[in-house]
Design a protein around this nucleic acid. Structure first.
Length: 699
DNA sequence: TTAGGGTTAG
């Protein structure tokens, strides 16, 4: 009877070398019992050589198995044992191939298989299963195809294990269609083959196919297992197929499969992705032994549902447990920090990542870059970019976009050139970054040029987002009519976002005519967006058309809409403070209002004049000044001034665009209080320093 | 001696 190593508790193994005098009938038992170290094995091996027992192929294979698989460490000894076997057969080759695979030397395994074929040793079904596994791991498609041919030649084409590894190979190497062909041609399909096909679709993100195939599986009466359900649940999450997900949940409950952590984790993930984060959390709370994946799934559930504060709270809870976070956890945590503009917390997380020596994977590196860029710290973002051992097109996109939104349009374009020099193919998203760089930097001709070249030179057809960027470039530069004509000439129907872009520029350039035209289009496409009414109203006020301005506001109210309240966040000592306009919710509210008053007084004496054109309309004229002085960003800045030491940079993130008055005031605050103030509004960054802003008053 | 499943970025 075979003995598993697991049945020997470590304490029964001796660490000292025990002389071996007699051999039992089954030397493998002995080897397993005694050989904890290579020295043990060497001793046994020496005896086997002396007694010539090693000439028995079965015994030699046992020594081989011990050295290649059971003992950790290098494959040198195993290889020496193997070389001493006179005519090794498939079984010996298989052990060595498994050893190389186990110890992460897949290339050696492939070479050994080649040698085996050159020596005319006939492979068996195990050889094929082992070597195909290696090929899929290193995506060795060419070798895999050759092996496939041999499988057919040797008549193992209908062997279940071989088939499923073949499906895996093709799917892993991106040939999901070939995998499907293999699957379709199977004379008999067991659950394993179905699961292999599911896993192929999973790896290539063919979510829809998983659900369709699952339907077929149910009809085929072959049954399914927990592995099937795990993959199908993942697909349900990606597709938002809550009904099927719930059906599987009921099945899990009914069959008592709740001890399977992988299954429950995919259930948590499914609910979170189907906008049922609270259901996901209830399930999560009931899991007795959560591992790092379960924690990460729940944290990412919050982060992807825009509940970033809860994501950070949960991460905090996780740190109180013994479960260590991994790179994947940190991606969700940092992306939450990025979303909130939580610079301090994110910076701490970055140092935590370094302290724990976590691997700087492309995804993690890109997320760190994005975090810094979204907190207005583009220098740090660049530094991480330079440090990253491997980068992909997403990393470049984050960098270009980050530079663009932080007001460094020209530098963004320099990096685009560098990206080309390095032979990285830009994606459609790259061009959104490039065009927005042109827009933020006022580079109209360059923008036009890129827009034309993106399809001609790079084969990327512009999507509606690219047209939107182009409208922004033209309109920001004051070419309002050209922007309007550009929209009219679009090959697709312009959406509300495109018209809104034009409307926003009409505000900057005080253009009533095209503002009204844009507004009329928007209300047809997206009538329930209060921001558009406010913007239109502000355009009227900016040229003194108060009645029209009031009419736009009334129109909004008549539709039952309320202006989205402005909200600003500031992080102090790792805690995030939230402010709304004229908000009294903060526990230190009266102190903050005093600080605002003091702040406004000081900037007024330095020449700031309040601009009440964008004040609330229901306020009395006298109150308008007070109203604008209580905008959320002013409250947050005042709080920042009293809670941080002199000279510290103040970082604010805001849900709407900054209004003209807040922009003027913040410029002055940066000068009077000698503070760098970075405001992230819904479109871009404003780096205020010594009285001016990086956006050059152009936003 | 052989296979398959859960969490991540623009």
């Amino acid at each position: 009877m075979a003995i598993s190593l697991l049945s020997f508790p470590a304490k029964t193994l001796t660490t000292t070398t025990t002389p071996i005098s007699e051999f039992p009938n089954n030397p493998k038992t002995l080897i397993l019992e005694q050989c904890k170290t290579l020295n043990h094995l060497k001793q046994v091996h020496a005896h086997l050589i002396k007694s010539s027992l090693v000439l028995n192929p079965k015994i030699a294979e046992n020594v081989l198995e011990s050295s290649a698989i059971l003992l950790p460490g290098s494959m040198d000894y195993a290889l020496a044992v193997f070389r001493a076997i006179e005519e090794p057969q498939a079984a010996a080759y298989n052990i060595l191939i498994r050893g190389f695979t186990l110890k992460q030397y897949p290339e050696e395994a492939v070479l050994l298989f080649k040698e085996m074929r050159e020596n005319d040793v006939e492979p068996d079904k195990f050889t094929f299963a082992c070597i195909l596994k290696v090929c899929s791991r290193i995506c060795a498609l060419k070798e895999g195809e050759q092996i496939h041919a041999q499988i057919v030649k040797f008549g193992y084409g209908s062997h279940g294990f071989v088939q499923s590894t073949l499906i895996h190979l093709y799917a892993k190497c991106g040939k999901v269609d070939v995998a499907r062909r293999v699957f379709d041609e199977l004379p008999e399909r067991g659950i394993i083959s179905w699961n292999a096909m599911f896993s192929g679709y999973l790896k290539s993100s063919h979510w829809e196919e998983i659900v369709i195939l699952f339907q077929e599986m149910l009809e085929s009466k072959v049954g399914f297992d927990e592995v099937t359900l795990t993959t199908v649940l993942t697909a349900c999450g990606r597709l938002g197929k809550l009904d099927l997900g719930e059906w599987i949940h009921e099945y899990i409950e009914a069959k008592g499969l709740k001890d399977n952590l992988k299954l429950i984790t995919s259930l948590i993930d499914m609910y979170a992705k189907c906008e049922k984060v609270d259901t996901a959390r209830k399930l999560f709370d009931k899991v007795p032994r959560r591992d790092v994946v379960a924690w990460s799934a729940m944290i990412s559930g919050y982060s992807q549902s825009d509940r970033c504060r809860e994501a950070l709270n949960l991460f905090h809870k996780m740190q109180m447990t013994k479960v260590d976070p991994n790179e994947v956890t940190m991606v969700s945590v940092l992306s939450s920090c990025a979303d909130l503009g939580a610079f301090e917390t994110g910076t701490w997380v970055h140092s935590f990542i370094k302290r724990k020596r976590m691997k700087l994977t492309v995804t993690l590196g890109t997320t760190i870059m994005d975090f810094y860029a979204k907190c207005g710290s583009i220098e740090n973002s660049l530094e991480v970019f330079e440090e990253m051992p491997s980068k992909n097109v997403l990393s470049w996109n984050v960098l270009i976009q980050g530079l663009a939104s932080n007001g460094q349009g020209r530098k963004a374009l320099e990096y685009f050139s560098l990206m080309r020099e390095k032979g990285i193919k830009p994606s459609d998203v790259t061009f959104i970054g490039v065009l927005s760089a042109c827009s933020h930097a006022g580079l109209v001709d360059e923008g036009r040029d890129f827009f034309v070249r993106m399809s001609i030179d790079y084969g990327t057809e512009p999507r509606i987002e690219h047209y939107g960027c182009m409208v922004d470039i033209l309109a920001r530069a004051g070419l309002i009519e050209e922007a309007y004509q550009f929209i009219k000439s679009m090959p697709m129907e312009p959406n509300a976002v495109v018209w809104r872009t034009l409307l926003a520029s009409c505000k900057v350039h005080k253009n009533i005519k095209f503002g009204e035209k844009s507004f009329n289009h928007i209300v047809k496409l997206d009538p329930k967006n209060s921001g558009d009414y406010v913007l239109m109203s502000n355009i009227y006020s900016s040229v003194g058309k108060w009645e029209d301005a009031l009419r736009a506001r009334c129109q909004m109210k008549l539709q039952g809409m309320k202006k989205t309240p402005g909200c600003s966040l500031i992080e102090i000592d790792g805690a995030i403070h939230e402010f709304f306009a004229e908000d009294n919710a903060h526990p230190r509210s009266s102190e903050i209002y005093d600080a605002v008053e003091n702040m406004m007084k000081r900037i007024k004496s330095s020449g700031y004049v309040p601009n009440t054109a964008e004040a609330r309309f229901d306020a009395e004229e006298d109150d308008k000044e007070a109203s604008v002085s209580h905008h959320s960003e002013k409250l947050a800045i005042a709080f920042g001034l009293i809670r941080t030491s002199p000279g510290t940079t103040i970082r604010i993130s805001k849900n709407l665009r900054m209004c003209t008055d807040c922009h003027n005031a913040t410029k002055m605050i940066s000068k009077v209080f000698h503070r760098e103030i970075i405001v992230r509004d819904r479109n871009r960054f404003h780096h205020f320093k010594e009285g001016s802003c990086s956006c050059n008053d152009y936003w």
